[in-house]
Nucleic acid binder design. Structure first.
Length: 551
RNA sequence: GCUCCGUUAGUGAAGUGGUUAACACGCAAGAUUCUCAUUCUUGAAGCACGGGUUCGACCCCCGUACGGAGUACCA
């Protein structure tokens, strides 16, 4: 068999040599130890947490080492490609603030190692395939889908390993005449790699996350070029990551199974493989079976990145939470350094979980409360405004009507050592503060159990006469005590608890009556501040409204 | 079927050949606060199972079970 002849017969249009292409991708000039990572999503129109999870690892590894983080669009499967898919990818990452140094952008490519869309690299891949073929390491395969299915069925029946290998690799050593005959007929064909691997052999692999392990050598003649002339992931990965100078490949552990194929291809090409970091699968609890399982794009649309934006999770919260999943010592670091930017954290793949990570909403919310509590009122205001504009236009109108007013509300209990942590999502803002807007003020005037409506009215009347915008929290509470005393309520909690029968209630009840009148509910932030923000007029109005309702 | 990976409280997770097996979320109780939100204290709850190696194993080895992934002209 003349392999040169075969290669020329199949790839007459490929005139470049591998050397010429290699020359276009010079070694990157980077400082010692700098890592080059890449994000390689497919434009399927769907981005999920797993993508972000991996991207965060990529981004941290690169930028922490002074390296490069780039975006490569892996659009080798036309069937799954979705219109606007690239836009979805770029939007998703930019909204989470993960900056790519180079790669595909909406305006085209940025950087010297492109093109960064695999669909535009057909000639490059084919050049290397042709070269492989000349060396007898690749061959065309004309097996049809039906033939492959039959092969599989036979293997199942015989309880043999599935796949295209050994005696099943029927096109592996066909004479040129057979090939020529199929070509004449115009039969579609793929190109397969000629594997010399043996499943009796084990390969040692040291994974950045999983550590040392042994995998079985690959004996399958995998497809490297599909019938449309576009490579499979396996081949594109090897060619691109070599040419583009990737030093660390971060990908999901589902790729572990094909690692032997990739290692084999690197070897055949005469290239040094990158380091690999296989991340644990992001899991969820299946609602039906109650068991853990890999999150699925089809079944779990709620795990799309867009879901979290719609629900109103701050992007920073999602990132912080993912970081806690990624590196278990992150939380500890965050407690010690509450003010530092996340990127100051020394991220390490060694601290990553080797088993699955289950995404938990409760934990996310906890992280989010802390994240939001660290923001200023202005920042929170801007975020809620942006969120509600998209997702709750009615509330947006109210919320932004008087920015100073709204921000004053948001400023209550903010800053200081023990900040309030009322908000986990931007959507929490509405129930938290809606009583501050007259349009949304829907009071529930149910008084505490042992406070009669008459008492309540009397308390309110007295308070109405005493209230002053000049009050401080201290003077306000003094007034509460005074009213309590005048009505036979205990002024001290302790005194009341010791002898509850001696009082009609306690100062807490008095405050509660005022709170219910002003806020229309039993829990609200600091009343004195709330009243200052509402203004004298509305305080009086609300007290009157409550008294009327109780009459 | 075959290959590979995994298994520490409800969840995430640290960790070591000899420990009272961290920590966080959640849960429960209590304290503080006029309510709530905070904050603090305390509590319940764990090394999948069976062998072996060893003076000693959660940790090392071998099985079993369970879970996951892959086994495509998808990535």
């Amino acid at each position: 068999m003349d392999y040169n002849l075969l290669a020329e017969r199949l790839f007459p249009h490929i005139t470049k040599t591998p050397e010429e292409i290699l020359a276009q991708y010079p070694k990157r000039q980077l400082p010692e130890g700098a890592k080059v990572t890449r994000m390689g999503p497919s434009p399927t129109g769907f981005m999920h947490l797993g993508n972000l999870y991996g991207a965060l690892v990529d981004e941290r590894l690169a930028h922490q080492s002074g390296g490069v983080f780039y975006l490569r669009i892996e659009d080798t499967d036309k069937k799954r490609e979705v219109e606007g898919g690239v836009q979805v990818i770029i939007d998703a990452f930019s909204s989470f603030g993960l900056p790519f140094d180079e790669g595909a952008t909406l305006e085209g490519d940025k950087g010297d190692y492109g093109p960064y869309r695999q669909s535009q690299r057909a000639e490059i891949y084919q050049t290397f395939v042709k070269d492989l073929m000349k060396k007898g390491l690749a061959y065309p395969c004309f097996a049809t889908e039906e033939e492959l299915a039959q092969m599989r069925a036979k293997q199942e029946e015989r309880k043999e390993n599935y796949g295209y290998y050994g005696e099943y690799a029927v096109w592996r050593d066909r004479p040129m005449e057979d090939i020529e005959k199929e070509l004449q007929k115009g039969t579609p064909y793929v190109v397969r790699f000629r594997s010399e691997g043996n499943i009796e052999h084990k390969i040692k692999h040291d994974d950045l996350i999983k550590g040392k392990m042994e995998v079985t050598e690959n004996d399958q003649d995998v497809v490297i070029l599909k019938s449309d002339g576009i490579p499979t992931y396996h081949f594109a990965h090897v060619v691109d990551d070599h040419l583009m100078g990737t030093t660390v490949v971060v990908r999901g552990e589902e790729w572990l199974a094909t690692l032997p194929v990739h290692l084999q291809l690197f070897r055949a090409m005469g290239w040094k493989p990158p380091k690999y970091a296989h991340t644990a699968q992001l899991m969820k609890i299946d609602e039906v079976t109650g068991t853990k399982r890999k999150l699925s794009k089809r079944k779990d649309p709620e795990l799309a990145l867009t879901f979290y934006k719609q629900q109103g999770y701050p992007t920073q919260s999602v990132l912080e939470y993912l970081m806690t999943l990624l590196n278990s010592n992150y939380e500890e670091w965050r407690r010690a350094n509450p003010e530092k930017p996340m990127n100051d954290f020394p991220f390490s793949t060694k601290k990553m979980s080797v088993s699955g990570a289950l995404f938990g909403i409760d934990k996310l919310k906890d992280v989010s409360k802390n994240v939001i509590s660290r923001m200023t009122a202005k920042e929170v205001y801007d975020e809620i405004a942006a969120w509600s504009r998209e997702n709750d236009p009615d509330f947006y109108t109210l919320f932004t009507r008087d920015p100073d007013y709204t921000q004053a509300i948001l400023a209550i209990g903010r800053g200081g050592k023990k900040p309030r942590k009322d908000l986990a999502l931007w959507s929490d803002a509405k129930p938290y503060m809606d009583f501050m807007f007259d349009e949304r003020f829907t009071p529930d005037y149910t008084m505490p159990e042992h406070v009669s409506n008459e008492d309540a009215r009397s308390i309110l009347t007295e308070f109405d006469g005493m209230f002053s915008m000049e009050d401080t929290p201290e003077s306000f509470f003094e007034k509460m005590k005074q009213i309590a005393q005048n009505h036979g309520y205990a002024t001290e909690m302790k005194a009341y608890k010791q002898n509850p029968e001696q009082y009609r209630g306690n100062v807490g009840d008095v405050s509660m009556v005022v709170r219910i009148a002003i806020a229309g509910r039993q829990n609200a932030p600091d009343m004195q501040l709330v009243m200052q923000i509402l203004g004298e007029q509305r305080v009086h109005e609300r007290i009157q409204q409550c008294k009327d309702a109780l009459a």
